[in-house]
């Protein structure tokens, strides 16, 4: 068994970097920060868009911003679960652009493709989470920095 499980080569190597437990008040702080950020964005957008109707460009800009945030999350975060959530964020941002273009062109195909994206995202999450569960069983870590077994 042992020679077939390269993941368990160094027991204990996975967990010695984890030092700080998340603060129980973390949710309140993050929600507060998100709410403050949302309020600032509301005020800024309301001022800059005063008296205008939203155009395709507005939806595309929002889609780009959310996509960038998702890409940043994939690059900066280390928890494999959060990484997957950020991938979902990116897929979802692209869906906004698809729906906006469907509305602009009056073409229903843009909405149909969003449906396909949702299906692919569901399949991807199911397989990805199964892999994460398997890796966690062997490595006892959800940290992607620990998973360098395929580095060459």
């Amino acid at each position: 068994m042992a020679d077939r499980t390269p993941f368990t080569a160094e027991p204990g190597a996975a967990s010695d970097e984890i030092s700080v437990a998340p603060s129980p008040r973390g949710l309140g702080r993050a929600l507060g920060a998100a709410a403050v950020f949302a309020t600032v964005v509301v005020i800024a957008m309301a001022i800059s868009l005063r008296g205008k109707v939203p155009t395709t460009a507005h939806y595309l800009g929002l889609s780009m911003l959310i996509f960038t945030i998702g890409a940043l999350g994939v690059l900066l975060r280390r928890n494999a679960l959060v990484l997957f959530m950020c991938v979902e964020l990116m897929l979802n941002a692209v869906n906004i652009a698809f729906v906006a273009f469907a509305r602009l062109n009056g073409a229903i195909g843009g909405q149909v493709i969003v449906l396909f994206v949702m299906i692919v995202a569901a399949a991807e999450v199911a397989v990805g989470l199964a892999i994460i569960v398997l890796i966690f069983r062997r490595r006892h870590s959800a940290n992607v920095d620990d998973l360098s077994i395929m580095r060459w």
Partner: peptide, 19 residues
Amino acid sequence: GAVALGAAVGMLFQRNAVH
């Protein structure tokens, strides 16, 4: 749009996976 952006930024800085 603001709620979506705020929640996305909150996700980026939130360390707890459940949150």
